[in-house]
Nucleic acid binder design. Structure first.
Lengths: 167, 167
DNA sequence: CGACTATTTGACCCTTCTCAAATCGGGTGG
DNA sequence: CCACCCGATTTGAGAAGGGTCAAATAGTCG
């Protein structure tokens, strides 16, 4: 860790990389570029290996902030696109609470829109989001697209093929 | 609740009542009891009268906080169940930002779960949520159930009937 | 090259959406 | 008290859209 910059420690993540693991401890990060998906480990004795998708973060969103409060990360964060993270400390946070809430509302609306409408619309919106989040290669894994849009991998595959022919 | 302090103004809302109207100005509120749905007025020249569901709030969540920042409410809030609101001022807010984030992650996960799985599961989860939010009569309007779960009103009607027979 | 993981494809079934029309209530003006 | 209107629910029938299960292909990384 060449931590010679006094202010903002940065960290890169490749597509598919686990950025934060539920149960472990560490700092909070701000998602500067790219998209991150958040999953909860299965609550009860369900399929081990399965996870519950609980949200995405991008464009300045904070991830892992709960570790500052409770000591451990509450969920797993994985890079959906290549990402750039920036260390975040609560001391450095100057955003007023009302602004945080406003940002939340917007974020929740975006996430919900990814679960509304038919398969092609959902997937298209996800790609738009990825593009606006500054993800360069714009190549997403089907499993991520499926988890985020609430579709099946097979459906995503077929829809994607249909889309590139039509549009 | 021996809270007779002059500071916390309370307000009741009946099912279906508009609590906050997009574009108007006013204070922020904390949802003490019940469930509130949030909608965005249609962005462009789409079906007038239609709204985009962008989230729900309950159990201590804040609504209308963006009016503190931007002067106007950014979305419409409607009572899905009878609700109790409590006036909120940013000055009174002492929750650390990290806690706000943690709460929000949880909230987003809950909302997403209401859009996952088949119709009966979604609807059942919404009723559980409504119950946990302290809504007494537990009678929801079909249009609200449909908007929140992302189903059609007809589907909700049919599913509800099938559910009360089976379970 | 070999083991694995990710993506495609096929065939078929089930859910949910659609479009229409019938009912059910609750108010209202006579 | 009754006829009527309007929004909210129900019901029907048929069509799409996705989900499932199974197998075949492409990629990847040692």
């Amino acid at each position: 860790m060449a931590c010679d910059t006094p202010l903002t420690e940065r960290r890169l993540g490749k597509r598919g990389q686990t950025l934060i693991a539920a149960g472990e401890s560490g700092p909070a990060w701000r998602v500067v570029e790219g998209i991150v998906r958040l999953d909860l480990p299965v609550p009860f004795g369900e399929e081990p290996g399965e996870e519950h998708f609980v949200g995405i973060a991008w464009g300045g969103d904070l991830i892992g902030a709960e570790a500052l409060m409770f000591g451990r990360y509450g969920y797993t964060a994985t890079a959906v696109t290549p990402v750039i993270l920036e260390g975040w400390s609560s001391a450095a946070a100057k955003e007023p609470a009302a602004l945080l809430y406003a940002r939340f509302e917007h974020r929740m609306g975006e996430v919900l829109r990814l679960r509304a409408g038919k398969a092609p619309e959902r997937i298209a919106r996800l790609f738009e989001l990825a593009q606006s989040a500054g993800a360069e290669p714009l190549r997403l894994r089907l499993r991520d697209i499926a988890a985020i849009t609430g579709l099946r991998i097979e459906t995503v595959s077929r829809t994607l093929k249909a889309m590139e022919v039509g549009g």
